[in-house]
Write a protein that binds this DNA or RNA. Structure first.
Lengths: 234, 234
DNA sequence: GCATCACCTTGACCTGGATCAAGGGCCTGC
DNA sequence: GCAGGCCCTTGATCCAGGTCAAGGTGATGC
């Protein structure tokens, strides 16, 4: 279950947070003050860190594990917005939101270690640190850009194109030739939700790409035979 | 056609920009410097101010008129993201984007007067103005929030619910009782695109709400008979 | 060894919204 | 006045993707 404890600023976790670009620009003194107010949080798979609509006072840094950020309808349907892995922060954009409530739900997809950072002290340090403010501006702008892209995908691409874009965006090993591999790090139903389709549809789409000879699949590993061909459909 | 000229800082346009919250926090001297680099822009209906993908160096303040921000697919399909009216800015979030290209296309829906503001000098003034930085952070966060809402609408609501939300969000005259009116300020096909449906579908949806007695329509004016009833479907 | 459960696939069928086609109302220019 | 454009509505039909139902596979526990 969910469990948190004050953080020792000498722990490796503190060092990892320090290195994150949202904190890298801060003077030591400011960071120390902040760090004393951070806490480590442990989550098991399936634990919910916060629900959409909960009052929000902290944002988070992922040390290990995976956090799924999703929207959930009154009828229980879920849309995965993003999956955040080690070394990244999430929910930092809440700092300046009118309604102080999380707009999304955060759930651990596996056992996860987080660093919880209180927003108010962080915002306070921004006042004296133009550089840090610029970094946060860049960060939030990047999120905004990503959301605009998502809307673009949802409205002017179909499910097949979204899957292809997803594959092309998640290549982990490109041999440099016209082929590549993608390792699926999340359960397929999470990927389906990220792509805004049902798992059945994802399964059928992967099937049809396979049948057309564009990819082949071995468990969680997907081989893209000809990147150039795949991109034609993007 | 598109036409621009350097701006006299004594013009009413400069006063209007000065009053906008992104500038209200700036010291006079900083604003003066900025204002000297601004220019007024006139657009006719249908003029395109910039296309998605164009290099971006300016953002804009709308003095009069309406600007449609949209995404356009290679096959020419258009999705309206937002329509910006008098007194508001747009494209300010480009300031911190990696790729210095507009992510959307901006088109005048009617004759429009804008003030064009160069990004770089604006960002420069932010360094010395923590308050202005905070305002921009709040502004971009609000945009981000709006996009997340849009994704929520697109994925977990259907077209009918989106229309109902739209109506409820655009009430201009609420008598205080359980009824209200909505004036459609844009052509229906633009509203359709904002809702991510085809004009035919919007027409049919309005028809069915009318048939169910929830609303009645008189040209560009929609009467909501019982707000409470309409909200049940939201 | 086998029950259970999570995860995934496959098939048959359904449906919301798109597409295609036609027509009506109302401007604007000649 | 009327020709040519929007802009919008309505009807008929289509289809991408959802829903429902039935397995299959593999991991975990007893």
């Amino acid at each position: 279950m969910l469990n948190s404890e004050p953080m020792d600023t000498n722990l490796p976790l503190a060092t990892a947070v320090r290195a994150h670009y949202l904190f890298a620009g801060l003077p030591d003194a400011d960071f120390e003050t902040l760090a004393r107010q951070m806490a480590a949080v442990q989550l098991d798979k399936g634990d919910i860190l916060f629900h959409s609509g909960d009052p929000c006072t902290h944002f988070y840094f992922v040390d290990t594990g995976l956090i799924e950020l999703s929207l959930i309808s009154p009828t229980g349907e879920k849309k995965t917005l993003e999956v955040v892995g080690a070394g990244r922060t999430f929910a930092e954009a809440i700092a300046f939101m009118r309604e102080h409530r999380y707009p999304v739900t955060a759930e651990a997809l596996q056992a996860t270690t987080l660093c919880r950072i209180p927003v108010t002290p962080y915002v306070d340090t921004l006042h004296g640190n133009p550089d840090a403010s610029m970094r946060l501006l860049a960060d939030i702008s990047r999120h905004l850009r990503a959301r605009v892209r998502e809307i673009e995908n949802l409205t002017i691409q179909n499910a097949r194109s979204r899957l292809i874009s997803y594959l092309l965006d998640h290549i982990d090993d490109s041999t440099g030739h016209d082929e590549a591999t993608v390792r699926l790090t999340m359960p397929r139903h999470v990927i389906a939700s990220r792509l805004s389709v049902k798992p059945e549809t994802l399964s059928r789409l992967l099937r049809s790409l396979t049948d057309e000879g564009l990819i082949s699949i071995e468990d969680r590993l997907i081989f893209i035979h000809r990147l150039s061909d795949l991109r034609l459909y993007d």
